[in-house]
Amino acid sequence: MNKTIENKIPGISIAFGIIIITEIMFFGGLISAYIVASAKAMTWPPLDQPRLPQYITLPNILILFLSGVFYYLFEKKSKSGIWKKQLIWTSIALSLVFLLFQGSEWINLINFGIQSSSGLYASYFYSLIALHGIHVMVGISLLIILMVKINKNKKNQNLMDTTEAFGMFWYFVVLLWPILYFLLYML
């Protein structure tokens, strides 16, 4: 076996930490561009654009947040060696509900006449929502990969590290949404 220095932080956590820094800078770029664009405009949202359904979308924050909470509970239990798969299933189910909700709203808005080519406001709205949606999908696939790994082997040290690293990504996606909601729907 290769003699190495003692591992303090598992590699996969470092990797996901770096990914999240890049993600923060990525969304930071988009969000700051959006804020500057909205500050420069005379009125925001522009007068000729339909208003967004602020209050109907509100429960969606709760849904995604709950999904994060269930993952947190799962992670906490996993530290003492108990793998509660129901918790992850709940987490996945809630995030799917979130996606469906947001997706149907998207399609409704397109039918309503907000199109990405119609102006800056809609361009930012659809891009940010879509990019966050893609991140939710990536998160869901990570959770499914985790399920598969758990089914294969329960007593693996790597599994705990993986749970922690995927958790970092999932919390990032969950916590990003309220910020986006505030900026896109309330501002």
Partner: peptide
Amino acid sequence: MFSVGPLIAGAFMLLM
């Protein structure tokens, strides 16, 4: 990795 995020954001916007 710290600086590339905004460019990826810009590249996405440009592509759109």
